[in-house]
Amino acid sequence: MGNRPKDPRRAFCTFITIFLLLAGLAVLIGWLIYRPHKPQFTVVGAAIYDLNTTSPPFISTSMQFTLVTRNPNRRVSIMYDKLTAYVSYRNQAITPPLVLPPLYHEKKSTVALSPVLGGAGVPVSVEVSNGLVMDEAYGVVALRVVVLGRLRWKAGVIKTGRYGVYVKCDIWVGLKKGFVGQVPLLGSPQCKVDI
């Protein structure tokens, strides 16, 4: 009795199976080491320079918000491009979108952004116009600062594809009609970041 020759198809299937298992293990280890975490955004300051309602319902405004963004990753940098920011009130934009410059966010770093948002009158609903007048009379206005754009993760020389990023910061500011300048933030929880 002699040795039977090995089946080449079986050897090939075994090779492919072992190769795929090792490749999958390498990808899993790489993901566990370089797993990127979402950036964190917080609004830390606000200034209102102009906020007027006119008839037919338009809102003209000039506002500046200081946003602090933190990259919590130890091994991954973040590259932002095509960023725009605007302010909304009662789910309606009250400033035109402002294009922000591209931003490179190093590992474990913090960056502050202070865009001035606003400009000419933005058409709004009567409900929004009347609500803003009432909230100013009360002295508390709820605003939402929104930042939209694209980001890429970078680990060493490896860059990922672009992902959409949507940052939503719901804040309460103390604001009385006619006041101009720094306004107190009455509530500034961490912003919600969706990627």
Rank of each mutant, 00 (worst) to 15 (best):
K168T: 14
H105L: 15
P102M: 10
K6G: 00
K168A: 09
I78F: 10
R150D: 13
Y86P: 01
S88I: 02
K177F: 08
P56C: 05
S60K: 07
V128N: 11
V145C: 01
R35M: 08
I29S: 06
R10H: 08
R10P: 00
Y138E: 11
N3M: 01
E136M: 15
N52R: 10
T84M: 11
P39Y: 06
S129R: 09
G187S: 15
L67S: 11
L32W: 14
L32S: 13
W172Q: 14
Q182Y: 13
R35A: 15
A137C: 03
G181F: 05
L175M: 11
I16A: 06
L185D: 06
V43Q: 00
M63P: 01
L103P: 01
K177S: 14
V44C: 00
K6F: 02
K38W: 03
V76Q: 03
W172H: 10
E106A: 13
V126L: 06
H105A: 06
A46K: 04
T14N: 10
K192G: 00
M63W: 12
V133S: 04
V157I: 06
E127F: 12
A85E: 12
V122G: 00
P96V: 09
L185S: 07
G131S: 09
P184I: 03
K192C: 01
K82I: 00
Y138T: 12
V147I: 13
K154H: 05
Y138A: 13
V147N: 01
D170C: 10
T110F: 01
R9N: 10
I94W: 03
K177E: 14
K177A: 14
R75S: 02
G119Q: 05
T61K: 01
P36C: 02
L21R: 07
G118V: 08
R35W: 12
T54Q: 03
I18Q: 02
I29A: 10
A26P: 01
G119A: 07
T53H: 04
T84Y: 13
I18E: 08
C169E: 07
V173E: 05
T160A: 10
R9K: 08
R9A: 03
R144W: 00
K168P: 00
C13K: 11
P97T: 14
V167F: 03
D50G: 01
L21P: 07
Y34E: 04
Q40D: 07
N73W: 10
G139K: 14
